[in-house]
Design a binder for these strands. Structure first.
Lengths: 197, 197
DNA sequence: TAAAAGTCTTAAACTAGTTCATTTTTTTTC
DNA sequence: GAAAAAAAATGAACTAGTTTAAGACTTTTA
């Protein structure tokens, strides 16, 4: 079977953890919805209930909340081959506190809550896929939340550059500040300083 | 079948997400190891490879790293009915950077890496159990890592007290400071101030 | 139950990061 | 491709949290 790029990409992603038969692959793809968003468009806004979990096949998006003062706090950047969404809202069906906004024209595959539940009934192998996917994400988050608290902003910036060299060049300094957890002004100072070294 | 308290506690924990038959329960319990640690004793030290994941049936433990300056950063407190360990090291078999130390005489049930892998072969239902367990932990960590970055230390303390009222009274102020991410001196100031309000 | 070890409090001097205000540079839009 | 909008740089005054040091209080241990 000849597949277009987005479908091939998501099947490769899934096959890192589980092996699917041809039939299962077809069944799986039939449960996904293709979605396009233009740069600056919202995939989701705070107050809504997260309808989908997304796999990015092209582009770049940012996931963020606004605090009481209206300052954005970015929790992740998602690019090709990443999963994103607001899992808390997706699972609990409570309103989200997050915005998801495309920072480039982007293409995604979404799985709805209904199809997500169906997926486990129809192809139990996906329990294993998600078990391993969540395990890996958890390991990442634990690392990050401990790092976040023990490093200075400058160290966090250097780590980010090392860990995500491709993402740094695709986002604005302002958004990076929102991710690192500092003001854009201080971000600017750090970058000037680090480049001087 | 009459079970002692620790076994009943862990089966109740598992049955929140999956239903096990009597046979599966017995099989599961046979894969666990009962462990006791005295107050101040280490369950694990940095440099070791995490041999077990632990379920606490009695007591309280802290999980922490030391930064370059030797200052402790506590990533979690684990009490009755909690799971703990260093998942990154347990899964990757790389040396851990964490210490796990009992802050009270404690009793745990451990599952070894060998038995963890065996568990999924013998009782595939556990893929589902861990899928849901990791999903919930992930939701918690995401919340915490965003909170951590956007709140002041005083706000983080107030949140902690609200979320874990029973744990606050079981740990020292110094350890709480290590969790909140501030010095014990500043923790002392915050507590004095908050109590005055 | 006395001594030792660890925890908590207080305070003064310090630093990483913020706030606010202005100018320059880059990107977007029509 | 000019005008408007957004992002980045710079600097001065400010604040949340650190550091160091010393004394009071509690818990552990022999």
């Amino acid at each position: 079977m000849k597949l277009e790029h987005p479908h091939q990409l998501i099947l490769d992603n899934v096959s890192r953890f589980v092996d699917l038969t041809e039939l299962e692959k077809q069944k799986y793809l039939s449960l996904l919805t293709a979605i396009k968003v233009k740069k600056k468009a919202f995939l989701m806004q705070a107050g809504e209930i997260a309808k989908y979990e997304y796999f990015i096949t092209k582009g770049c998006l940012k996931v963020y909340t606004l605090d009481e003062d209206g300052a954005p706090h970015i929790s992740m950047f998602a690019v090709e081959d990443y999963w994103t969404g607001d899992m808390a809202s997706f699972i609990t069906k409570e309103p989200s506190r997050y915005f998801i906004k495309a920072t480039e024209d982007s293409e995604l595959l979404g799985i709805s809550r209904l199809n997500y539940d169906l997926l486990f009934q129809e192809i139990p192998k996906f329990e294993r896929f998600y078990r391993i996917l969540y395990q890996k994400s958890l390991i990442n988050y634990i690392r990050r939340s401990n790092h976040g608290i023990s490093l200075t902003a400058e160290e966090r910036y250097i780590e980010f550059k090392k860990k995500y060299p491709k993402i740094v060049n695709r986002i604005t300094q302002k958004d990076l500040a929102g991710y690192i957890g500092i003001t854009p002004e201080f971000m600017s100072k750090i970058i000037t300083k680090v480049n001087r070294m």
